[in-house]
């Protein structure tokens, strides 16, 4: 029973301490009409297996990520949700000994196929990390970095920087100090800078790996608002430990869990359930999901 909803004090609590109903109502736009499955998936994972050396980290994941939707990956620690996320833009290539089996498609094209350049993949599928990681450069140069390294054709870098910063709801706070170091910003501003830096390269998909776990609640709420705004232009996939966050921002939720191997005890992550967020939190079809959502485990 370690997980309590943020709204516990105001929400009606049921006799057995379950708060799945509360969580369902937290969703900001629960009335948003969603088809049962993403009709036009931007990215799909088919039979995705990940190994680190001999260690089977993720087992047979099938997912599809719809255009202009926010998909949340949730689950207990070590369930492989971050690993799955890092497979989606081939960041796992950088881990020595990592091996990926199965398919990850981006607009139908397998990004693990022969002849695919991982660097090209990453320009289309951007990533925001757990800890804000601005470069030790000026705010301006942080934004301009991506377009510069990828050789993007840019008419006016100043305009692009402004557009990216406006897109990340940071422009008004930093427009007078663009030449100052990004390290002078607060944690939440730094994270929004990292989002601005990512959208400056005009990606299609933005991956977010627990983007708010290092931030205070106010900064978290600003990032969440930003995600809702960005949804109209981007496909967003977010890993989060915070179930309220998943319930608040996401359209679809994938619940992962870890299954210990009988002989070695190594925990392999697997996908339990993938559905609309409202259904996952209100009426999960799998017992393990319900246990996790209701705080009985994890």
């Amino acid at each position: 029973m370690s997980i309590k909803p943020a709204t516990a004090s105001t929400a009606p609590s049921t006799h057995d301490g379950r708060h799945v109903d509360t969580l369902a109502t937290v969703h900001q736009d629960a009335e948003r009409e969603l088809p049962a499955l993403p009709p036009d998936p931007v990215m799909e994972a088919h039979g995705l297996n990940v190994f680190y050396g001999d260690f089977h980290a993720v087992h047979d994941v099938n997912l599809s990520f719809g255009r202009n939707e926010i998909t949340a990956l949730i689950g207990p620690s070590g369930c492989g949700k971050s690993t799955v996320l890092r497979c989606l833009n081939r960041m796992n290539d950088l881990v020595t000994g990592a091996r990926v089996e199965g398919e990850v498609t981006y607009h139908g094209q397998n990004i693990y196929a022969r002849g695919v350049d991982p660097i090209a993949v990453r320009t289309h599928i951007g990533m925001v990390f757990q800890k804000p990681n601005p470069f030790p450069k000026s705010i301006y140069d942080n934004i301009a970095y991506g377009p510069r390294v990828t050789g993007m054709k840019v008419d006016s870098m100043d305009d692009l920087v402004e557009e990216a910063l406006r897109g990340a709801a940071l422009w008004d706070e930093v427009k007078d100090k663009l030449k100052q170091s990004a390290y002078g910003l607060s944690g939440g501003q730094q994270q929004r800078l990292c989002i601005a830096r990512t959208i400056a390269t005009r990606p299609d998909v933005i991956l977010m790996d627990e983007p708010c776990s290092a931030l205070d609640p106010i900064a978290t709420s600003r990032i969440e608002d930003l995600m809702m705004e960005l949804r109209s232009d981007y496909t967003i996939i977010i890993v989060t430990h915070n179930m309220q966050q998943a319930a608040r921002v996401s359209d679809r939720t994938a619940f992962f869990t870890a299954r210990p191997d009988e002989t070695t005890g190594n925990r392999t992550g697997l996908l339990v359930e993938f559905d609309q967020t409202t259904r996952i939190f209100a009426n999960p079809s799998d017992k393990r999901t319900e246990d996790y959502i209701s705080g009985r485990f994890g």
Partner: peptide
């Protein structure tokens, strides 16, 4: 820190660009 390199690589920079523009100056 490794996060700086990852941030750069995730933007589509090559290892060489990451080293030359980020790691070495730092």
């Amino acid at each position: 820190p490794e996060e700086i390199r990852q941030g750069s690589l995730a933007l589509g920079a090559t290892v060489w660009q990451t080293t030359w523009r980020n790691t070495l100056p730092s």
